[in-house]
């Protein structure tokens, strides 16, 4: 069997007495598009935080392409190929868009330590940053500070930051949350066009988006993974209909 991009075994996260994630196991194949769904409070974001290292796990294992990363800090996991977006946009508000992207690009290489040359002299990095902005249709605002972007544009920048850290596995936490239908369409198209050498895990509330992009879907409910299957299987499963859509 091919090496899994992400393998999570019995992952548990407790906040004091509250068990937010309860013995979740997942196996995501390289190149797969996996969507996590579940009602509010199901533990989806907490699970993401634990896999990417934003939070420490209480118990369980996480491995990335067969390598155990359970005890590695977040920045080391990023260096090994994890990239993520945040549910509420987490961009560098006071910096220009170009600087935002430069930080994403040099985050995993040694150039971040250079002290004796100005950023402006790194032509290759700047060119790549411009390309990255073009990809999310923000190139015309390269020199504006991120705080002047609209909500939707910030989501685009958020995605660009994650993409430019050169991830092998990309974690998207509700990339379309709070967007207008047209913005939602353009973001989901960008995600759909990502090359298959990037594995994508995505939390998404919008069922249309989720089911169109997903190869497989995992349903979380009260911290547990209650079902995994193809979009059609999940959609027709009576248990899912009950927890996710409520009683009919």
């Amino acid at each position: 069997m091919a090496l899994s991009a992400i393998e999570v075994g019995d992952l548990t996260k407790d906040f004091g007495g509250l068990r937010a994630v309860d013995r979740v196991s997942l196996r995501v194949a390289a190149g797969e598009r996996r969507v996590l769904i579940g009602p509010n409070g199901a533990g989806k974001t907490t699970l993401f935080h634990c896999i990417t290292g934003t939070l420490r796990t209480s118990a369980g294992r996480v491995s990335l392409f067969g390598r155990d990363v359970t005890h590695l800090p977040e920045h080391r996991r990023t260096a090994l190929g994890m990239g993520r977006t945040f549910q509420t946009s987490n961009v560098f508000m006071d910096l220009s868009l170009l600087e935002n992207l430069v930080l994403a690009i040099i985050g995993t290489d040694r150039r971040k330590w250079v002290m004796h040359r100005s950023v402006g002299t790194f032509e290759a990095v700047r060119a790549k940053a411009r390309e990255g902005l073009e990809l999310v249709a923000l190139a015309h605002r390269a020199n504006d500070a991120a705080k002047f972007l609209s909500y939707g544009e910030r989501r685009q920048l958020e995605l660009a930051l994650a993409l430019n850290s050169d991830p092998r596995v990309l974690f998207l936490d509700e990339p379309c949350a709070g967007l207008s239908p047209s913005e939602r369409h353009s973001i989901s198209r960008m995600i759909g066009e990502l090359p298959r050498d990037i594995t994508v895990l995505m939390i998404e509330h919008d069922m249309d988006v989720a089911l169109r992009l997903a190869d497989r879907v995992t349903v979380l409910h009260r911290g547990r993974a209650i079902l995994e299957g193809t979009p059609t299987e999940v959609q027709t499963n009576p248990e899912v209909r009950e927890v996710y859509f409520g009683h009919v």
């Binding site: 560098f92 910096l95 930080l103 930051l161």
Partner: peptide, 16 residues
């Protein structure tokens, strides 16, 4: 300046 603006984001981009 990135750390000042958002340290959580910096960590997720690979910065110690």
């Amino acid at each position: 300046r990135g750390i000042k603006a958002s340290e959580t984001r910096m960590r997720s981009l690979g910065y110690h």
